[in-house]
């Protein structure tokens, strides 16, 4: 099924997806990735988006950071915003290096500690508070204002949690935000595929946003003539629909919400 995912985009998308993409100038949408624990799916997507030089921040919507333990009933549980990836890495290596190497946790945490300090919880995020203390995070440039244009969630319930939370906050900032769910199974392989899918979608969205801004000048809408080119916001459903054709196994949901 991975073969089907994104097969037709392979030629269109920039090829250098394993490494850093060359610095491409111009307008950049600000992205935010969200999964349950801000560990696997959102962090893989965070990494891939930051490698493509997008401003990106990431969060988890769970109440606690949960990582698999030696058995289903013994998960490793951590607090959001309080424990760094680095300390989790060291703790698990101490506990059972063999086990956590085999199940990929150490590898994941090692990747994460190279991306940012630690998992952050969506519900505790104060939208619009400057994030100047995050300078060492990957994808920091552009996120200093503490807002995002597009939120990618990696699971339906995270999308629900995000939208519900935005209702709770009451939209005090008057800033529109596209919330898009890309359903990714929570394992390392799928996270990698999902991250590529999200990057592909981000590229398509950013292309449209860039085009909108390049079409500078008058909107001239209220003197009669209809606008020739559709704006970024209204193109989003179409872009998501086209993307869904390319990535049929990553079911997507979109809404336009408010910060």
């Amino acid at each position: 099924m991975d073969v089907a995912n994104g097969a037709s985009v392979a030629a269109a998308a920039p090829p250098a997806q394993n490494g850093e993409r060359d610095e491409a100038g111009g307008y950049k949408l600000k992205f935010c990735t969200v999964c349950a624990s801000n560990q696997n799916r959102s962090m893989e997507a965070h990494l891939q988006l930051s490698k493509a030089n997008y401003p990106v921040i990431s969060f988890g919507t769970g109440s606690l950071v949960r990582l698999p333990g030696p058995s289903i009933t013994q998960p490793n549980v951590y607090q959001f915003n309080k424990t760094s990836y680095d300390s989790m890495f060291k703790e698990l290596r101490e506990k059972d290096e063999d086990l956590y190497t085999r199940n990929g946790l150490l590898n994941m945490l090692n990747r994460n500690r190279g991306v940012k300090w630690g998992p952050e919880r969506w519900q505790d995020w104060q939208v619009g508070i400057p994030r100047l203390e995050h300078t060492s995070d990957r994808g920091y440039d552009g996120t200093e204002g503490g807002v995002a244009d597009v939120v990618f969630t990696c699971e339906e319930r995270c999308w629900d949690a995000v939208v519900d939370d935005l209702h709770n906050r009451g939209a005090p900032l008057n800033r529109p935000v596209h919330v898009i769910n890309v359903d990714i199974k929570d394992n390392h392989e799928e996270a990698l595929v999902g991250g590529r899918g999200i990057l592909d979608l981000a590229d398509s969205l950013n292309k449209a946003a860039k085009e909108e801004r390049e079409a500078a000048g008058s909107a001239a809408f209220d003197i009669g003539s209809a606008t020739s080119r559709a704006s970024f916001d209204e193109r989003v459903p179409e872009i998501v629909g086209e993307w869904q054709e390319r990535w049929p196994n990553l079911p997507a949901t979109w809404t336009l919400a408010w910060f």
């Binding site: 919507t61 109440s63 606690l64 289903i72 998960p75 319930r157 199974k185 929570d186």
Partner: peptide, 27 residues
């Protein structure tokens, strides 16, 4: 949606966390 119990504000108990863990890992 089954997902709603994921919203931590409505559930604080640890055993729910563990149920969720099970759900998470049972895919």
């Amino acid at each position: 949606e089954d997902d709603d119990d994921y919203e931590p504000d409505y559930y604080a108990a640890e055993d729910n966390e563990q149920i969720l863990n099970k759900l998470d890992s049972s895919e």
